[in-house]
Design a protein around this nucleic acid. Structure first.
Lengths: 213, 213, 213, 213
DNA sequence: TATGAATGAGATTTCATTCAT
DNA sequence: AATGAATGAAATCTCATTCAT
C-alpha cells in the first residue's frame, strides 16, 4: 500500500536536505508532469547530483509516492482552522482561503495532485486515495456541523453538501494553480479579484447553504 | 491559434475514416496522457499504418489540437438542452445528466480534457480556451435566466453561481471518468448510486439556489 | 521456452541482413560477454542504427536467445559427417576436426556458448539446453555405433564414453577459442601443432577406446 | 604480473576477516560473474562496509586477482592425494573425487574459474596462467607415472593422456558447479548418481587407459 | 581504520519523425 | 496515398570509486 518509498539513505541525511529534495521533486513533477519530469532536473533543482536522487528513491515512481505522502501533512495544515472551535461559516471560509494560499505558494504541487486523478497515473491511486478519503471525511464532518449549527439548510443532503464544498475547494485551487483555469476564472468573475475570489465563492455558497426560514 | 492542424490529405479521406482516427486519438491520448501516448498506438487503434498518421497530422501536437477541436462539437451537444426553451431547473438537470453521460460514453475524452489544465500542457491553452470560454458563457447565460425566472436567489452573485455550476459539472464528469475520483465519490455519497449521483447533486444545488422568501 | 525472440520486423528484412546482424551479435557477445556487450557495438558492427537493433529484438536478452537459436543450425553442420555412413573412427575424427574448425572460424561464438554455462547466465538455460541435449544424443548414438562396430571396448560404459567424447570435443573448442586455454594446450602438447592438435587428441582417444583382445 | 593486489591494510586485519572477505568475494564473483558482481554485494556478504572493500583492494580487478591467488592453495589441496605415494589408479580416482568435492563445496569458485577462460576476462590471464600450468604439470607427472607403472598403455601419447585427464576433471567440476551442466550430465548418465558420477567416469577412463597386451 | 553518502560516466531502451518503396 | 523499416536523441537507472567524518 503506502509503505516505504525512500531508502535508508534518505532517512540518514539532514532533515533540511530532505525537505529541499521533496520540494524540488514536487516542483519539477508539477511543472513537467510525472511522465515529462526528468530526474536530472529534480537533481539540479535540489542541488544534488544525478546519482544521489536514485540513492534516495529507487525509481521515479517511488519519488512520486514520497512526494505525495508529504502532501498528507500539508493537507492537515489546510484543514487545521476547521478543526479548531470556530463556527461553520468561519471554518469554511478559512479552508477556502487556505486552499487558495496553498495553491498560490505551491502551484506545482496542485498541478501534480490534479494529474494523479488521470487515467495515465492510475498506478498511484493507492498513494493518493488515503489523502482523498481524509479530505472527504473532513468535509463530511464539517457539513454535519453546519447542519447542527443551522448554517446549512435542513432540507439539503449532507453528503451532497460535502461533495459540493470539496468540488468548489478543488476548483478554486485549480483556478489558482493553472494558467488556463485562471483565465477561465477571470472570464467568469472578472480579472483583478486576486485573493478575493476565494472569499466571493465562499460567501456565495455559504449564503446559499444558509437556511432562511 | 486555432487554424488548421491537419493536412490536406486528412481532408481528402472518407469522413468515416476521419472520425475513426480522431476517436482513436482521443482514446489513446486520454488513456495514456499526451506525453505518454504513442503515435503507433493511435495508428493501431485506428487501423491505419504508422506512417499514415504523420500524413494526416504534421506532428503529435497537431493531432492533439485536432482532437480538441472536435471536442467543440461535443460540447455544443452537451449544452443543447439548455438552449431550448426549457425552464432553468430542467436545463441544469439536463446539462448535468448530459455531462454524466458524455463521461460515461467517452471517459478518455474527459481525461484528455482534464489533462489540458495541467502546467505540462500549457502550450495547448490557445486550443482549449475558446472551448472553456464558450462553456463559461453558457453557464453565465443560464445563471441569469435562473435569476429572471426566480429559480436563483436574488441575493446570490450571478457570476459566482455560474462558476459554481461549472465547477460541479466538471467535478461530476471527473467523478465518472476517473477511477480514483469515482472511488472518492462513492466515499462521499455511497456506492451503487450509478447515474443517480448526477441527479442527487443537481437536486441539492437547485434546492440551495432556489430563493425561499 | 524457446518461442519467438525477434520481432516481425526482423522477419521482414532481407535474409542477408538478418545473418549479418546475428553474426555481429555473436561476435560482440562472445568478445565482451553478455553483460559487457553494448548494444551500440552490435549495431555498429552490423552496420545498422542503434535504434534498429531494438526494432529487431525487444531486449538484449532476446537478442542473445536469437543468437543461441542460430547455433542449433551450426551444431547440426558440425555433426553432419557423423550422420553419414562413415565408420566410427572416421566420424569421431571428423567431428573433432569440425569442432576445431568452427572454433577457428567463430571463436566468439564458442566463447558465448561457454559463458552460457555460468551461473550468471542461468536465465538462458532454457535456450541452450535443447542444443546441449541434441549434442548429447548425437554422442550417445555415436558411442553405441562404436560398440557395434567393435571400435569401442565392450567393457566400457557407453554413456561414460559418450560423456568423455563430448567433454574432449568441448575442451578442444575451448582450447582453440580462448587465448588462455590455447596457452594451456601448448603447455600440454607443445606449441606449433596448429590444427593437428585435434587429430592427436582424436587418435589418442580412439586408440584407447579400441578393444585389443 | 602476480605481485601484490591487496593493500597493506588488508594484511593488517585479522586472518579470519581476510578469509571471510575473500570467500565472500569468490561467492559473489562466481554467482554474478566478474562484470556483474557488485562491490556492494561483496561488502554486505562479508559483513564489512562498502568503503572498506576499497581500502583492502584498490580496484575491483585487484580483488579478482586476490581471489584467484587464493585458488592456488585450494588447487594444491586438490592434488595432494596424487603427490603422496599412492598408485596411479588410486591417485586419479582421488583427484577426480577431490575435484567433485571442491565443486560441491564451492560451486561459485568453479564458476569464477570457468569464467576466467572467456575472452571478456582475458586481462586476468596472467593471474590464472600459473595456476593452469601448475595443474598441467601435475597431470603430466601423473601420466608419466601411469606409463611407468603400466597403468597407461605404452602406445598412448603421454601428453595427450594428461590433456585428456585434465579435460575430464574440468568437465566433472563444471558438471557439478553449473546447473545447466548438471542437467546435461544427467541426460548423459541418468539422474540420481550423485557423487558416483565422478567414480564412473574415473573407472571408465582408467579402464581404457590400462594396457591389455 | 571504518563508514556510508556522494558522484557521474555510461548502458539499455523508447518513440516521434523521416523516407524509400 | 499508404506502408512500415530506419533513425538517433534523450531518459532512467547502475555502480565503481572517492572522500568527509
Amino acid at each position: 500500500m503506502s509503505g516505504q518509498h525512500h531508502t535508508q539513505t534518505f532517512d540518514n541525511i539532514p532533515a533540511e536536505k530532505r525537505v529541499r529534495i521533496l520540494r524540488a521533486a514536487a516542483f519539477v513533477l508539477g511543472r513537467d508532469g510525472i511522465g515529462g519530469a526528468r530526474m536530472g532536473d529534480v537533481a539540479r533543482e535540489a542541488g544534488v547530483s544525478h546519482g544521489s536522487i536514485f540513492s534516495y528513491f529507487p525509481t521515479k515512481d517511488d519519488m512520486v509516492r514520497a512526494v505525495v505522502e508529504r502532501g498528507m501533512a500539508l493537507q492537515a495544515e489546510r484543514f487545521a482552522p476547521a478543526d479548531s472551535g470556530s463556527r461553520f461559516d468561519e471554518a469554511v471560509l478559512a479552508v477556502f482561503r487556505g486552499a487558495w494560499e496553498l495553491a498560490s505558494a505551491e502551484p506545482e504541487l496542485i498541478s501534480l495532485w490534479l494529474s494523479l486523478s488521470l487515467a495515465e497515473n492510475a498506478r498511484f491511486a493507492d498513494a493518493i486515495l488515503p489523502l482523498e478519503k481524509d479530505a472527504a471525511d473532513r468535509w463530511l464532518a464539517l457539513a454535519e456541523r453546519g447542519k447542527r449549527e443551522g448554517s446549512v439548510a435542513a432540507a439539503a443532503d449532507t453528503r451532497a453538501v460535502a461533495y459540493l464544498l470539496d468540488a468548489l475547494a478543488a476548483q478554486l485551487m485549480k483556478s489558482r494553480a493553472s494558467a488556463l483555469e485562471r483565465r477561465k476564472l477571470e472570464h467568469f468573475i472578472g480579472a483583478g479579484l486576486g485573493g478575493e475570489a476565494a472569499a466571493l465563492i465562499a460567501d456565495t455558497i455559504l449564503g446559499l447553504l444558509r437556511s432562511r426560514d
